[in-house]
Write a protein that binds this DNA or RNA. Structure first.
Lengths: 134, 134, 134, 134
DNA sequence: GTGGTCTAGACCACG
DNA sequence: GTGGTCTAGACCACC
């Protein structure tokens, strides 16, 4: 499967998995109703422990991205299940504020910062609201 | 000192300290050549462990924001010491990518995301490159 | 047959089947001496595994609700076969205690909780003792 | 600590822990801002694995009952953090419906069922809304 | 000292 | 075969 894990990263492995699955949803390589690989399969492929994959899946479940199924494993929810809500906007704000503060502090112009964001958006192919899957 | 620590936050206390000192540099409440409070003083004021403040200072030192003198304690460097470099741009990109991916996934339009960023910039008073302190 | 299975529910499918058959007895859509569908038939109708239906039937048998014949399949017992006994009262108590504890904890007034119960009773049409079937 | 674990119960150990801590909040033996025992300590006391206790604490955290702290461990939230909301009422309904259906089916009169509930309420000392702690 | 992460391996419930 | 639970033991981050 399309995924690279950096065992030496500060980011926990389960977060890396979670992030890349979300990326997959954005880029269209993971679609609504797709089943993710079984925890055992995926763990074997990535060379990590099955519990680590399981934790990633449970995190995605808790965030509304997937539903965990007895037989089919983790199945990707339709986009409506994880539409941005107030809680999410709060979280984004809290995540962005220190990043932006540091950028300002380091002398990065607002335009430059916004350009970085735009470039990332373009990487993801300018997916628009509602087009990401389904 | 102007600082609020949330002991219940998921963000480590030393990161909260580091973030707020950077915010202070951005807003001008912390200036070049200012001495930060001594670790003992600061720890006592915040009601936290001395080692925690020390860790925050060492992080800031490592990132170029301050210099640690034996006598004067942690002293804020001039802006040139921590101008954005390639390494920083790499880090910002890595930090932003999963945030933007999740926003896309959750159906947040690019314009909305950029507006959130702009609003944070305005909170910081539209500080421009080079104006932040000194 | 009148039954909806939620494959995504946390409740095991065999429990869902068992619950809905009990509901059927309460509402009168399943009567004493009725034969339940054959495991094969039922499994095919619901699009699930044959073993799952079998497990539900065995559970119902063990609880006294049905009898399993070789020919007629699962046949609904008369109400006397599954009248509440001490064991049942013990079970109900054990099931209700954590639910009530949590309600209290979350600030739900006793009257509100009892009203919820009453409303469910009314959904089931105020069936009275002994009137449920037969 | 006041807690009894039944290793042979169908109810997972982590659920038993979670239930009894909620009971503790209701009866007043666990109060707002109390720290629960450390996962290691508690696991040793109960003769179970530390991860099992950890899972219980994380469940309580997710449900709003506690906050997990780096130093103080799991700290009980004020009642406002876990006031009943619409989601909770939905869950209660779903939990009660099969219990009530079975009671009806087994010939338990509505009054008897409500009496069972009342008796449990009295076990918990007729705690009223808002009186449970704080 | 605390909890968080990860590994390894077992058994069970589910279908 | 799947995920869920539990155990055992390791290392690390935090304070």
């Amino acid at each position: 499967m399309w995924m690279t894990i950096d065992l030496n990263s500060e980011i926990p492995i389960y977060s890396q998995i979670r992030n890349q699955i979300i990326e997959g949803i954005v880029t269209g390589s993971v679609r609504t109703n797709d089943s993710l690989p079984s925890v055992r399969q995926f763990a074997a492929d990535l060379g990590i422990n099955l519990h680590t994959v399981n934790k990633a899946y449970n995190l995605l479940k808790q965030e509304g991205f997937v539903q965990v199924h007895r037989q089919k494993g983790a199945v990707v929810n339709p986009p409506d299940s994880y539409r941005a809500n107030d809680e999410y906007y709060t979280n984004v704000n809290e995540a962005l504020r220190p990043i932006i503060a540091e950028s300002l502090c380091r002398g990065v112009a607002r335009e430059d910062f916004l350009n970085i964001c735009e470039r990332i958006y373009e990487e993801y192919g300018n997916v628009k609201e509602g087009d990401n899957n389904g």
